[in-house]
Design a protein around this nucleic acid. Structure first.
Lengths: 152, 152
DNA sequence: ATTAACTCTATATAGTCAATAGAGATTTAG
DNA sequence: CTAAATCTCTATTGACTATATAGAGTTAAT
């Protein structure tokens, strides 16, 4: 399961992506519009900033913006950053490999073989999906719903 | 990430599947051969038993056996039992649906759409893989490794 | 009866998750 | 140059979960 922290982070990034590269967005605005706990969000945005995903300016007229185009930020990267590796077990992680403590022989471990499949399937989705994709999809979904409403 | 508990449970089941439907296997044997903490393993096996996956007989000559053929026990079932839903967020779980607390509109939530893909991909693998499959694969992997050793 | 095994309750420790408080540092406007 | 706005940093809190372990209780076979 994704942590709340990761979900909040993703929502905040999506909000910032929506807002575009224009003027900085206040933490307070993100928190209010997306209904996220403000103080917790502060910490999350700070992490995303120090990872180079966000940019911020303190002081009057300050706030947060994306540090890079939305299409260069993948969901996989953000989730790994906040929640750690996508892999279900450490011995199949590409980005944070570690042997399983209790494993007797990695080469013949079938749990490992299956979990590698799971990791690869997950990574294939999350590393290919960017925040630009999410924005596109959001617009389409919103239109779809509006269309349904209209047809009634 | 899978919990240690789930990994231990899977290893124990694999060990029991290997052993076949014959005489009961002692907790102590499983713990020693697979190097799992015995007391912790006791609790895990008990859970698997009350879920109907294992059968046990107390007393002299007792121990644990699979309650059903290995080919009818899927990895997905065992993992859900011990660690909970496969879905990365509750609103896309098929077996334990719950709305995300902070979600403003599930119908247009793109995070949900992506996470549904992840869940489906994961479930497709784990719900199709049985302990009989794992046994087969283990034998093949062991032969493969032996073959390589022999050829050197 | 005695032994060998599982079963149950209780406990412990450490760590993580989710969140909050409040003082500090920085920038811009005026 | 100062005041207001805003991000930044440190610390703390409470609840919960993960990972075990101890020991008494129960059951079945011989």
């Amino acid at each position: 399961m994704l942590s709340q922290k990761a979900k909040y982070g993703i929502r905040a990034l999506l909000y910032l992506a929506q807002h575009g590269q224009g003027s900085p967005v206040l933490i307070r605005d993100i928190a209010e519009k997306e209904r996220l706990p403000k103080k917790f969000l502060e910490a999350i945005l700070l992490e995303l900033k120090s990872a180079g995903i966000l940019h911020s300016r303190p002081g009057k007229g300050g706030g947060y913006t994306l540090n890079r185009p939305a299409k260069s930020i993948t969901l996989g990267r953000v989730i790994r950053l906040i929640d750690g590796p996508l892999a279900p077990i450490p011995c199949v992680s590409q980005t944070a490999y570690a042997p399983c403590r209790e494993c007797l022989d990695e080469k013949t471990c079938t749990i490992r073989a299956i979990m590698k499949q799971v990791r690869d399937a997950t990574a294939a989705i999350l590393d290919e999906t960017t925040f630009a994709d999410l924005l596109d999809q959001q617009n389409k979904l919103a239109q779809g719903v509006a269309g349904i409403d209209f047809s009634i």
